[in-house]
């Protein structure tokens, strides 16, 4: 498989590390003073353990550790391995900080 890194161009699979489903968003479960919300554990249980396992197009997180160290969101068909899109994570590269809550 080959992934077109937005920074490095098309590179082979061995340079990348797979993380998985890009959909889960880390919950905000603590107040500014550190107080834990009552449902914090439930929210985090979903975030840590629940993953979709899609047969078809799926947004996945990949890390270009053998290259620019960017985290990427790769849209891959899990049945054919066809890669339809590759986007850098909002904080990837040396650009200015992205806005909080930016879509990755």
């Amino acid at each position: 498989m080959r992934i077109a890194c937005p920074f490095c161009g098309e590179r082979e699979l061995g340079e990348f590390t797979y993380l998985g489903d890009a959909a889960p968003k880390r919950p905000l479960a603590f107040a500014a003073d550190g107080a834990e919300q009552p449902d914090a554990q439930d929210l985090f249980f979903d975030y840590v353990y629940l993953r979709d396992n899609i047969a078809g197009d799926m947004n996945e997180r990949w890390y270009h550790g053998g290259g620019c160290r960017s985290w990427l969101t790769v849209t891959r068909n899990t049945t054919t391995h066809e890669i339809k899109a590759v986007r850098a994570a909002p904080g990837a590269g040396a650009q200015k900080p992205a806005k909080a809550g930016a879509i990755s």
Partner: peptide, 13 residues
Amino acid sequence: QHLEFCRQVLWPE
């Protein structure tokens, strides 16, 4: 890799 994930994905702000 973990640190970069936190910086780039979790807290890009």
